[in-house]
């Protein structure tokens, strides 16, 4: 498919809402195979940055380049390559898991039933595929949401606090899935305030505080101490 890319470059992106600055001249680059953890306390601007990467939020200044081309050159086609999983599920509770997945597959131009079947299988809910989603537990819904976000095999995978409300087993599953994605050549961004979950999963860490990029470095053992200090300063 056209418009594919293997790196994402955030170039001097700022975004403010009136007097509140959500992002302040952030620059960073992520390449295929990396899992970039966006770490920072609540309200640090992580979600805004994820929104900018997803083309849902327009930066006040600066730009994001997908494989060296800016958004306006790529057009709607670009969104074929972006998958977003947020804390909100992006699913219709009135519809069944199968209906939800079929609908979103359709939006991406994927008609084949196997795609939906495989996603249901991965989510581990084949036997309850036709129940309304509102009957599911938070963990089950989150698994469906994960499959929904990845239906169209996006190149750029954006996770915004994907672990909230999940039990340990579900967290493990999501984490495994993330590793597989990265190994397959995806670019993964994961925003979280929870260091324990990010630790050992991310390959790079970008620390964000009050909209500013405080550091951007490979994940290492020192991460924990640095993060703690950062949160204390905030």
């Amino acid at each position: 498919m056209s418009g594919d890319f293997d790196s994402v470059r955030v170039v001097g992106v700022s975004r403010h809402f009136g007097r509140r600055r959500a992002l302040s001249t952030i620059s960073l680059t992520a390449r295929s195979g990396e899992i970039v953890g966006l770490l920072g306390p609540n309200g640090a601007g992580k979600s805004t940055l994820i929104g900018v990467l997803a083309t849902l939020v327009a930066p006040s200044s600066g730009e994001v380049r997908y494989g060296d081309r800016p958004v306006r050159e790529l057009g709607p086609e670009l969104r074929h390559h972006i998958g977003l999983l947020a804390h909100e599920l992006h699913l219709y509770p009135e519809l069944s898991a199968r209906q939800n997945l079929t609908f979103f597959a359709g939006l991406y131009g994927l008609d084949r039933q196997e795609i939906v079947d495989r996603a249901l299988e991965r989510a581990g809910i084949v036997d309850r595929a036709d129940d309304p989603l509102s009957n599911f537990s938070r963990g089950m819904r989150q698994r469906v949401a994960l499959e929904r976000a990845l239906l169209h095999r996006p190149r750029l995978v954006l996770f915004d606090e994907p672990f909230t409300g999940l039990d340990d087993q579900a967290v493990g599953l999501v984490a495994d899935r993330l590793r597989v994605l990265a190994a397959d050549g995806c670019i993964v961004f994961m925003a979280t305030h929870d260091l324990d979950l990010a630790d050992g999963l991310v390959t790079r860490v970008a620390l964000v505080r009050s909209g500013k990029l405080v550091s951007d470095e490979p994940a290492d053992a020192d991460l924990r101490a640095r993060y703690r200090e950062l949160v204390r300063q905030a």
């Binding site: 997803a54 083309t55 849902l56 709607p76 086609e77 670009l78 969104r79 074929h80 972006i82 977003l84 947020a86 909100e88 599920l89 992006h90 699913l91 219709y92 509770p93 009135e94 979103f104 939006l107 991406y108 131009g109 929904r148």
Partner: peptide, 19 residues
């Protein structure tokens, strides 16, 4: 309100078609 509840409107806006 239905599109807002689980922020499905954002998911719709991510579809690779003219918005």
């Amino acid at each position: 309100e239905r599109e807002r509840y689980a922020e499905t409107l954002r998911a719709l806006l991510l579809a690779p078609a003219p918005r």
